[in-house]
């Protein structure tokens, strides 16, 4: 009984530590109109054309990052599980590097290598800069995407399913698209939602590559307005939580998850 009380107390303290600042921020975001609670700050933010433009831009970048991440990570993780299991620790280490090396180091490296006076002047054009940020985001999302996909691959017998498909006449492309990918789809989605959450609020890459995405917009808003930044922060939290909730929902209701239960 005493132990149980302690557990409840610890959970309560943890919840207060986590939720109190959020509640405070949310309450503050509702006080834009003097004397009454209202969603005025949210109306202003959501109605701002700059918000719509930067948010839309970041959403497109996030989706493209997810596609690029899936194209890179799924075949790589699959091939390593199938044919090169001995180099798995090396690949895992490489995919973890973005967590160790700060984004500012990566982006300075990009700018140094791909500046306008380099042999590949990607920063000199709109398309080049967007490609650069896309590659940067794909790198940033590697630890999450790779881990999610690798965990998914661990739950299926990759080698036998591949051989079964091969014996039925399937080539590599079909095996990946119709056998492997559908069976790790929930894991890919988990990685995708995490990637989405990271890219939507990313600031360093966008600011240093001088791109007008949602991250720099939030910083600009924070330094120029009072109530709107709180509303924006609440919106950003809501997006992240929605992503997490979707991961949970998809995992819970997926056919394969049922099979495993």
């Amino acid at each position: 009984m005493r132990g149980r009380l302690w557990s409840i107390a610890v959970v309560l303290i943890g919840a207060l530590y986590f939720f109190l600042p959020l509640i405070g921020m949310f309450e503050f975001s509702l006080r834009m109109k003097r004397g009454v609670y209202s969603f005025e700050a949210y109306r202003v933010v959501l109605g701002d054309p700059h918000f719509q433009q930067t948010f839309g831009y970041s959403v497109v970048l996030a989706l493209l990052t997810i596609v690029l991440g899936v194209l890179i990570v799924v075949p790589t993780a699959y091939w390593i599980r199938l044919r090169l299991p001995s180099i798995r620790p090396v690949v895992e280490f490489v995919t973890l590097l973005p967590l160790v090396i700060p984004p500012i180091v990566i982006v300075f490296g990009y700018i140094r290598i791909y500046n306008t006076s380099s042999w590949l002047p990607l920063t000199g054009s709109w398309l080049g800069t967007n490609l650069l940020i896309l590659f940067g985001y794909a790198t940033l999302s590697l630890p999450y995407m790779y881990r999610a996909v690798d965990t998914g691959l661990r739950t299926i017998d990759v080698a036998t399913l591949t051989e079964a498909a091969q014996s039925l006449g399937a080539g590599w492309g079909r095996i990946l698209a119709t056998v492997i990918l559908p069976n790790v789809f929930v894991s890919v989605l988990s990685g995708a939602f995490l990637t989405f959450a990271i890219v939507i609020g990313e600031y360093v890459f966008a600011a240093l590559l001088n791109l007008d995405t949602f991250g720099p917009y939030m910083v600009w808003m924070g330094s120029n307005r009072a109530y709107e930044p709180s509303a924006l922060a609440v919106i950003a939290f809501a997006i992240t939580w929605a992503c997490m909730a979707l991961i949970q929902l998809l995992t819970h209701f997926s056919t394969f998850a049922k099979a495993r239960r």
């Binding site: 299926i156 017998d157 036998t160 399913l161 051989e163 079964a164 498909a165 091969q166 014996s167 039925l168 006449g169 399937a170 080539g171 119709t178 056998v179 559908p182 069976n183 789809f185 056919t255 394969f256 099979a259």
Partner: peptide, 30 residues
């Protein structure tokens, strides 16, 4: 020749049915 060019049917110890496909889709895969 590669396995997918040999026209050989194989049954595995661990069944190796594709979990994402129904029985009919599994049989119709080849």
């Amino acid at each position: 020749l590669k396995p997918n060019q040999r026209n050989i049917g194989m049954v595995f110890q661990a069944y190796a049915l594709f979990p994402n496909l129904t029985v009919a889709q599994n049989v119709g895969f080849g």
